[in-house]
């Protein structure tokens, strides 16, 4: 970490706080995968890491390299844009796949398909 010696202290503090915050959010999100009870609850947990978590780490990385190389380093924004566009798509696809599988099995805890009323399943 010798290269970081030229970094001003205020920047080092900001980078450190952002890194710890981002990693902490990712840890809480992944811990939620273990803690929450059903699949549909667990879908929510990783969103912590994929929104604010990776956002904090990306801002920390941008600040660090911009100050270290004395020029604007912005390529981290590409990962941020990529995450913003892909995370909702993957989670939606996954939730729909899970819903489809539960409906095929007539699992009573999920709502029936629109326009269909199950004879056995409970109405929610």
């Amino acid at each position: 970490m010798i290269h970081a010696a030229e970094l001003p202290v205020w920047a080092a503090v900001i980078v450190a706080v952002l890194l710890l915050l981002g990693a902490g959010l990712a840890l809480i999100g992944s811990f939620g995968l273990l803690r929450l009870r059903s699949f549909y609850e667990r879908v929510h947990a990783p969103t912590l890491g994929t929104t604010l978590g990776i956002g904090c780490v990306l801002v920390a990385s941008m600040l660090f390299f911009s100050l270290l190389q004395r020029r604007l380093v912005l390529h981290e924004i590409l990962i941020a844009v990529l995450m913003v566009m892909t995370t909702p798509v993957t989670l939606m696809l996954l939730a729909r796949a899970a819903l489809y599988r539960d409906r095929v099995e007539r699992n009573g805890s999920v709502p029936p398909p629109p326009g269909v009323r199950w004879e056995g399943g409970e109405e929610r």
Binding site: M1, A4, P8, A12, V13, V15, A16, L19
Partner: peptide, 9 residues
Amino acid sequence: MSVVLLAWA
């Protein structure tokens, strides 16, 4: 100072 702080973080 900033090296130690960043290394730990």
